[in-house]
Design a binder for these strands. Structure first.
Length: 203
DNA sequence: GAAGCCCTAGGCATGACGCT
DNA sequence: AGCGTCATGCCTAGGGCTTC
């Protein structure tokens, strides 16, 4: 299934045929101050940071095995710190309206971080995908770093690994809210994975 | 006007299950 | 096995209302 939703005129993919989207993505990433290697390094370093951490007398990975939810939260916090410590102009978000990773010199390069223990896919909140013009807290269009990591269960006796890192652009209109109002998930159509998110690391 | 409370929207996710 | 859909949990910010 390779369909696309209509793009608004504010999207960099507006009026771009599906088979030319990859070129637009390459151009978007070329303009970005961070390279794919920069992003990969920040993610892998942040991941290692988790396993060199202790909470009280408990060592993560030896005494403490946080749920994927918690591991995602830690990554979410540590990736911006890793980027800001090695690249000028970057800082972690300080307000809900900001993207997770803020680039002070030019806010359009600010980047959202999304993590999931799903092997391949990332998810947003249902509110991403429903019509709520102007009421959302932050712009959902923009640069994204998407990280898939292993859960403890999958890793078995080994230390869980980063499976995949993607870097690209997602428009707010790309998100598809699940139809049931009681649910909270939004997913992305396959064309977004195929043409708007570049794989910069694949384990 | 300040403080406190309640409720909802929005944000972060996961697990179960059916279909291909 | 992989993917899509649906159901669910927990937390926070903020608006609206009431009370002091």
């Amino acid at each position: 299934m390779f369909w696309s939703r209509p793009k608004s005129s504010e999207s960099p993919y507006f009026d771009v045929p599906d088979n030319e989207r990859q070129a637009v993505t390459r151009e978007l990433l070329r303009e970005h101050p961070l390279s794919g290697q920069d992003v990969t390094n920040a993610v892998l370093d942040a991941w290692e940071d988790i396993f060199t951490s202790t909470i009280g007398v408990g060592r993560i990975g030896i005494d403490i095995f946080p749920t994927p939810q918690i591991m995602g939260f830690l990554l979410h916090e540590l990736i911006p710190l890793r980027v800001s410590s090695s690249h000028n102009g970057w800082r972690k978000d300080s307000e809900a309206s900001e993207k997770d990773l803020v680039f002070e010199p030019d806010l359009r390069f600010s980047t959202e971080v999304k993590t999931s223990s799903n092997s391949n896919l990332i998810y947003g909140n249902r509110s991403y995908g429903v019509e709520n013009s102007g009421r959302g807290k932050k712009a959902k269009s923009g640069y994204y770093i998407a990280v898939n990591f292993q859960s403890w269960r999958e890793a078995g006796r080994n230390q869980p690994r980063i499976r995949r890192v993607r870097f690209g652009w997602i428009d707010s209109t790309d998100w598809i809210a699940q139809t049931a109002e009681t649910g909270q998930a939004s997913s992305l159509p396959s064309i977004v994975y195929g043409s708007q998110l570049a794989i910069v690391f694949d384990d």
